[in-house]
Design a protein around this nucleic acid. Sequence first.
DNA 1: CGCTAACCGAGACGGTACGTCCCGTCTTTAC
DNA 2: GTAAAGACGGGACGTACCGTCTCGGTTAGCG
Lengths: 210, 210, 210, 210
Amino acid sequence: MRQTESRTETRTQTRVDPRISESRRLVLMAALEELAEVGYGGFAIESVCRRSGVAKSTVYRHWPGKLTLVADALRSLNVQPGSAMAGVPPSGQTPRERVVEIVRHLATAFTGSTVAACTPALVDAAEHETDIRDLFHEYNAERRQTLVDAVTDGVVAGAFPARVNPDLAAVALAGAIMYRRLMTPTPMNPSDAEALVATVLGEGPSGRRG
Amino acid sequence: MRQTESRTETRTQTRVDPRISESRRLVLMAALEELAEVGYGGFAIESVCRRSGVAKSTVYRHWPGKLTLVADALRSLNVQPGSAMAGVPPSGQTPRERVVEIVRHLATAFTGSTVAACTPALVDAAEHETDIRDLFHEYNAERRQTLVDAVTDGVVAGAFPARVNPDLAAVALAGAIMYRRLMTPTPMNPSDAEALVATVLGEGPSGRRG
Amino acid sequence: MRQTESRTETRTQTRVDPRISESRRLVLMAALEELAEVGYGGFAIESVCRRSGVAKSTVYRHWPGKLTLVADALRSLNVQPGSAMAGVPPSGQTPRERVVEIVRHLATAFTGSTVAACTPALVDAAEHETDIRDLFHEYNAERRQTLVDAVTDGVVAGAFPARVNPDLAAVALAGAIMYRRLMTPTPMNPSDAEALVATVLGEGPSGRRG
Amino acid sequence: MRQTESRTETRTQTRVDPRISESRRLVLMAALEELAEVGYGGFAIESVCRRSGVAKSTVYRHWPGKLTLVADALRSLNVQPGSAMAGVPPSGQTPRERVVEIVRHLATAFTGSTVAACTPALVDAAEHETDIRDLFHEYNAERRQTLVDAVTDGVVAGAFPARVNPDLAAVALAGAIMYRRLMTPTPMNPSDAEALVATVLGEGPSGRRG
DNA sequence: CGCTAACCGAGACGGTACGTCCCGTCTTTAC
DNA sequence: GTAAAGACGGGACGTACCGTCTCGGTTAGCG
């Protein structure tokens, strides 16, 4: 009875039950919280239920298990407009500036954002669950691509030495940030971005720029 | 410690009961198996008991919980003579060769060794457990040091550009390998070591650095 | 009520919607099946829905709960023309023959008919649910009455000793059959009817035996 | 090997852990309560846990499911010294008196005792569970035997007519009591015992019996 | 013969109990 | 006296139904 949908009728498909979307929303939110707080290992569906106020049966009605729930929660991060990872600012002028900017953004995102908090959980989950693995790797590949492109542009433009393999360079840059975050007590500081780029891709300013 | 108890040496430190060391040994072995198989998340002490044939009460007598048991198991890896991670081959001639060798070794170790299988579990555990975190970070720092040293040597010797920050470089190299292992479907191939070093630290042999 | 709607009788009571009666029919049938198969304890409304193809909401629209559904299903048995319990054959000649016939019929009905299959469920349900209890006891009283009447006739006619209390005798006869069915592995065989009557009500007419 | 058990060695068997017997005791008691209150159908293990204060895991450690728990609880009734059903008083003088006494006892036991409260539950359970069925039928057979014996004695002694089939008579007597209890609103009153015996087995005192 | 009221199916929802597995603590028994 | 065995209370797992509810879609029968 809602509205007669007369006219243009954009009505894409079968009109999902509003109760479902609300439940989904609440659960996914709570799941991300839980994931960030206790990791994939400690993740308990009943805890998600308590957080979200949604009944266990409802959760299991929508997701077969912890696995897919987590996967879905993460997928929802990609979509969330305000997500720290969502948009990478490609605003820089020169290729080097663009690369530095991306690296700095990456370093920032890896400290504080929800995804960052989930990353350790994901790393572990990906090791044992194919679905999570595929999702996670794909997600990483997408995120990395901007960096690869920027580096490639720089090499083509002569801003970086020809010896630079864009793929390896991107992996080294992203890897440095990730390594510092996951395997050392001190994450990379965003302000270290320039120094990192200088180390990996050669002199910055002096490199003809100054 | 544990040294040959030279001479008379009448029991300086109470002479640990042989049953205890045997139990410890069995449990730690089983714990590593378990850890590699199901990760830190799925790790179950009762499963370790089943594997090792040691009673649960005995396990809890020696370790306060899953946490410290895992920590201890990992610590035991460091000591194990045949461990893939134990000795880093410092045999190379030039600094660059040494760095390449270390990187190659790292890439190898990250595929197949028991520690490697435990790494994802550790990454997650470290996020939530201080003890594991400290142990893990310290362990990584140690492992990384050889690389830092080798890069420093290379910079000093003029084999690598002066712009290179050895710490960042080491993190970038190790991070690249780790990133490929944990966050992509395809780990770094040991034979890529040279290309990686070339990308991060400048031209190889021919580059003569100039 | 429900009287033959004689004559014009233009719809005193709103002419029930054929969809409703069809749903009712399907559900009650399925409910009896279910009851016979899994008992009152295991009786699941959702299972009845699956059997009958009727939606759960429809079932709950017509019956407030499992209780009344079962009660209704059983009531429907009384009405069913072909029911094993429906008609008691009063065809015998002498009172003793009539009693034997009824007992034999009872023994037969207690093996194989749908009601018989439901009886244990009913016995349990009656213990805890007032509605079911009343319905069940009333039903039993009706069924027993024919027997009481036949025995009374026999006593009056001198076919049975005067000492016989018709109520107690009827209960003993029916009870014997019920006891054998519910509390022993071997139900009463219909051919035992004569022996049972002989035991409870004394020698047969001919007294032939001595 | 087991025990040195020097000496007398009264040591019947492996000495059951006192914690186990205590848990068992508490659970079985609670189970009987539960059974009497809500029947076999409504019987909930978690409710038994709440009643008894014993953890669910402990219950499942000792019994695979509701079925065997109930069976065990009932078995325990047989053993309980004070049980209403345990001892049948065979104190009567003449066979008829003995029979009347047994019947009276039966009628009494069928009103108020714990077993009586469980009987409807058992009748239902026996219908669907082989284990319960066997246990229940066996139990009934035992209980009935005293009655069969007393009747047989009476027939042999000439106190009852020769036409009486002791098995059928016992089933009729016990069945009458059970029928009244399970299938009518008014259980048999113990004081009706004589009238029942008179109806089924012929005249009492006056019955010339001598 | 078309409209409206009702019934229907589908199934989401918050619950409760199931039976399983593991936790970490503890008691008991055996060597 | 210490080790093995394992009982215990607890809590999460994932499943099955419960009884309530909100939806659209359909269909009966009146006007």
